[in-house]
């Protein structure tokens, strides 16, 4: 995964798992990772996505009315 990536933060790990499941069913490349400490003090998980897929990701979020906390650039 060398392409530009983003992380989506959710309010709960269940919501992150839901988004992972929906994204995978659309064959998108996603990965659940620990929330980077500089983004949140929460100890949960967030979803790493490719920026190229962002349009499809946002369609899923809208269609399934998934509430999320924010979308941030992912820096290694």
């Amino acid at each position: 995964m060398k392409e530009a990536r983003s992380v989506i933060l959710f309010y709960s790990s269940s919501a992150a798992l839901k988004m992972e499941s929906l994204a995978k069913s659309e064959n998108l490349v996603v990965k659940l990772i620990p929330i980077p400490r500089d983004l949140s003090s929460d100890c949960g998980i967030c979803l790493l996505v490719l920026n190229d897929d962002m349009e499809e990701i946002k369609t899923i979020i809208d269609n399934h009315r998934i509430e999320y906390e924010g979308i941030h650039d992912y820096m290694v």
Partner: peptide, 21 residues
């Protein structure tokens, strides 16, 4: 599940989420 963010915790979370689905 849903507590620590390591691979095993995520796997446990997935097992429960699958049940919800």
């Amino acid at each position: 599940p849903g507590r620590s963010a390591h691979r095993l915790s995520i796997e446990a979370g997935r097992a429960i989420y699958r049940t919800r689905e």
